[in-house]
């Protein structure tokens, strides 16, 4: 592995680890109850309240930790939805020929052109705002992108001579898919999913900022940003804290994705 990439991976995993660690800790210990307003409104950082309190008197550090649960949950949930649906649809599209292939390609392009936010609003309009609908909307949008990538990769792998050799040898299609196609598209899809996980965190923050994500009183980083907006000049920490937390998680995920590419590619591994 190249030196630079392994540094990326180390820094990325450290940043993600920081967030994961904080979230795991939040299940064992929280500085205050999430709805505890005893601290007074808009307390400055320091003392009992590490990051101060918001305009309702709730502890910001507590909210930040709970927001982390939602951010990580969204990332994992959306990747699960997007990965399963996307790879499945992409495989089918990759094997399609003639008019079926054209239909698949155009459908995927239309789905990708469809704005995630609009899709989320439609789903929210139907099912109501909740973390689940946000994850579903983000996952579906991700699935289209993953499917298009998978489709192209599958088509590429299918032209390789080792596939022809396997077919001549009478290996069945399911075995070819498991033995040759998935392993060969895997690294690229995995790296893409990791990048998409970072985008999913941002998408959830956007949805929550617009009131389409996690409903109150559950804190999400996007909603914390929205609530801090009115008082950003008097209490900048309330906006800075969730903003920085988002940057730490997304940069961490992206750097990990970058480093992951090398780990999964034997041609870049120095030795076995």
């Amino acid at each position: 592995m190249s030196r630079r990439r392994s540094v990326h991976l180390a820094i990325g995993l450290a940043l993600v680890g920081l967030v994961v660690g904080a979230v795991l800790m939040s299940y064992l210990w929280l500085p205050f109850a999430p709805d505890d307003t005893s601290g007074g409104r808009l307390t400055a950082p320091g003392g009992d309240h590490l990051l101060g309190t918001d305009k309702l008197g709730r502890d910001l550090f507590t909210q930040l930790l709970i927001g982390g649960r939602i951010a990580l949950g969204t990332a994992l949930g959306a990747v699960a939805v997007g990965g399963v649906l996307g790879v499945g649809a992409g495989l089918l599209a990759g094997f399609a020929t003639r008019w079926r292939d054209d239909v698949a390609a155009v459908t995927l392009d239309i789905l990708i052109a469809f704005p995630t936010l609009l899709l989320a609003m439609l789903i929210v309009a139907g099912a109501g705002a909740s973390l689940g609908t946000a994850i579903l909307a983000i996952g579906l949008a991700m699935a289209a992108i993953v499917a298009r990538l998978t489709r192209v990769l599958v088509k590429q792998v299918l032209t390789r001579d080792y596939i022809t050799a396997a077919r001549i040898a009478g290996i069945s299609w399911p075995r070819i898919v498991l033995g040759h196609v998935l392993p060969n598209i895997g690294p690229v899809v995995l790296v893409n999913l990791a990048l998409q996980a970072g985008l999913a965190v941002l998408a959830e923050a956007s949805l929550s900022y617009l009131g389409l994500g996690t409903p109150p009183p559950n804190a999400s980083w996007g909603r914390m940003l929205f609530e801090a907006q009115a008082t950003v000049l008097t209490a900048p920490v309330a906006a800075l804290a969730p903003g920085l937390a988002l940057v730490v998680l997304v940069v961490g995920v992206n750097l990990s994705a970058d480093g992951l590419r090398d780990l999964t590619d034997p041609t870049r591994r120095r030795s076995r």
Binding site: R160, D161, Y162, T164, A165, I168, P183, P266
Partner: peptide
Amino acid sequence: GKIVSTVFQEPLTALDPL
């Protein structure tokens, strides 16, 4: 599979890189 087998032009793509 039982009767025919092939050798291709480009040995790099004839073998699965993984």
